[in-house]
Amino acid sequence: MPELPDVEEFRKVLESCAKGRLIQRVDVRDAGVLHEVSVRRLRHALEGRRFGRPERHGKWLLAHTDDGLTVMLHFGMTGLLVCGRPGDEIEAHDRVLFTLEGDRQLRYRDQRKLRGLWLADDDSDVVRLLDGQGPDAMAVDREEFETALASHRGRVKTVLTDQSVVAGLGNLLADEILWRAGLSPTGRANALTEPERRRLYTHMRRTLRSAVTAGRVPPRDSWLTGHRDDPAPACPRCGTPLNRSRLASRTTVWCPHCQPDGS
């Protein structure tokens, strides 16, 4: 599933491929990925305009145009944003194609089509579509983060992946951050001590910086992520066999030694 680092990488793709370029044609190959906008309206609104500087909030990508419109993209479980040329072979899951001046083509590609594209008419429409999203995980300050944790009774893994609490963290990132912080995913968020909340914030920021640099949550040998899918997964820190369970319908992996219950 695309998480904050993946979407930040898509933002870079959009900026390098499309920023400042005229949108010559919009081809919607599957209208099932459009939300609150018709094919005709999307084409009429975008063709002849230019993409501006894109932004990201959590897992959302905001593709602004030069006249105040914004294409809002969410990648669900399997979405991608790729840059190519109009003559490139069309893939089976290419849903929307933006042909740009300079022989460029931006493609929204998604296998499962769980989310898709919205068109915001102005800033207030952007705010409406992002309503319910918490602060971006890369931008939230420590005080706001700690206050949010202290006010939620849910399990800390569930709270971290709740986009209304903090936007951008998904399953892999939450497991990685909790492992680095030495905190059990099953503990209650509001039961964390102040030092634990601060430790969690510090490791969230460090993990995000590394993952954004890599353009994904990297499966490195020194990371929990690099071992969660091993045949016999073991903690890269202490060698203890990893626990695996379902928490809030998500596969959760943790080290019972490094992340003991009640820690």
Results as ranks from 00 to 15, higher is better:
residue 4 L to Y: 07
residue 4 L to M: 03
residue 6 D to P: 02
residue 9 E to F: 10
residue 9 E to P: 00
residue 9 E to Q: 11
residue 10 F to A: 14
residue 14 L to F: 10
residue 19 K to C: 04
residue 21 R to Y: 04
residue 21 R to I: 02
residue 22 L to Q: 06
residue 22 L to V: 05
residue 24 Q to W: 01
residue 31 A to F: 00
residue 35 H to T: 04
residue 36 E to R: 05
residue 36 E to C: 00
residue 38 S to N: 06
residue 39 V to M: 03
residue 41 R to L: 12
residue 42 L to Y: 01
residue 42 L to N: 03
residue 44 H to V: 14
residue 50 R to A: 14
residue 54 P to N: 06
residue 55 E to F: 02
residue 56 R to V: 14
residue 57 H to I: 13
residue 62 L to G: 09
residue 63 A to Q: 04
residue 63 A to K: 10
residue 66 D to I: 13
residue 67 D to F: 00
residue 68 G to M: 08
residue 69 L to F: 13
residue 69 L to W: 14
residue 70 T to Y: 01
residue 70 T to A: 09
residue 71 V to Y: 13
residue 73 L to W: 04
residue 73 L to V: 12
residue 76 G to W: 00
residue 81 L to M: 11
residue 85 R to F: 09
residue 85 R to M: 13
residue 86 P to M: 11
residue 97 L to R: 15
residue 97 L to D: 14
residue 98 F to G: 07
residue 98 F to T: 08
residue 103 D to E: 15
residue 104 R to E: 07
residue 104 R to S: 05
residue 104 R to N: 04
residue 105 Q to N: 10
residue 105 Q to T: 14
residue 109 R to D: 04
residue 110 D to Y: 01
residue 110 D to R: 04
residue 117 L to P: 08
residue 117 L to R: 05
residue 122 D to Y: 00
residue 126 V to G: 11
residue 126 V to L: 14
residue 131 D to A: 15
residue 132 G to H: 03
residue 132 G to S: 02
residue 133 Q to E: 13
residue 135 P to D: 14
residue 136 D to H: 06
residue 137 A to R: 01
residue 137 A to C: 04
residue 139 A to L: 09
residue 144 E to C: 02
residue 149 L to A: 10
residue 149 L to V: 12
residue 153 R to K: 05
residue 153 R to D: 06
residue 155 R to Q: 15
residue 157 K to G: 12
residue 162 D to W: 08
residue 162 D to Q: 03
residue 162 D to C: 06
residue 165 V to Q: 06
residue 167 A to P: 03
residue 175 D to Y: 02
residue 177 I to Q: 00
residue 177 I to D: 01
residue 181 A to D: 05
residue 182 G to H: 07
residue 183 L to R: 07
residue 183 L to Q: 10
residue 183 L to S: 04
residue 188 R to I: 05
residue 188 R to S: 14
residue 189 A to Y: 01
residue 189 A to S: 13
residue 191 A to S: 15
residue 196 E to S: 15
residue 197 R to V: 09
residue 199 R to E: 10
residue 200 L to A: 11
residue 204 M to I: 00
residue 205 R to I: 09
residue 206 R to C: 00
residue 206 R to K: 09
residue 210 S to C: 02
residue 213 T to Y: 01
residue 222 S to Q: 12
residue 222 S to D: 15
residue 222 S to H: 13
residue 224 L to N: 07
residue 225 T to C: 00
residue 226 G to F: 08
residue 228 R to N: 00
residue 232 A to Y: 07
residue 234 A to T: 10
residue 236 P to G: 13
residue 236 P to V: 14
residue 237 R to W: 05
residue 244 R to F: 04
residue 245 S to G: 07
residue 246 R to A: 15
residue 247 L to A: 12
residue 249 S to R: 07
residue 256 P to S: 11
residue 256 P to V: 10
residue 256 P to K: 08
residue 257 H to N: 12
residue 261 D to R: 11
residue 263 S to L: 12
residue 263 S to R: 15
residue 263 S to E: 10
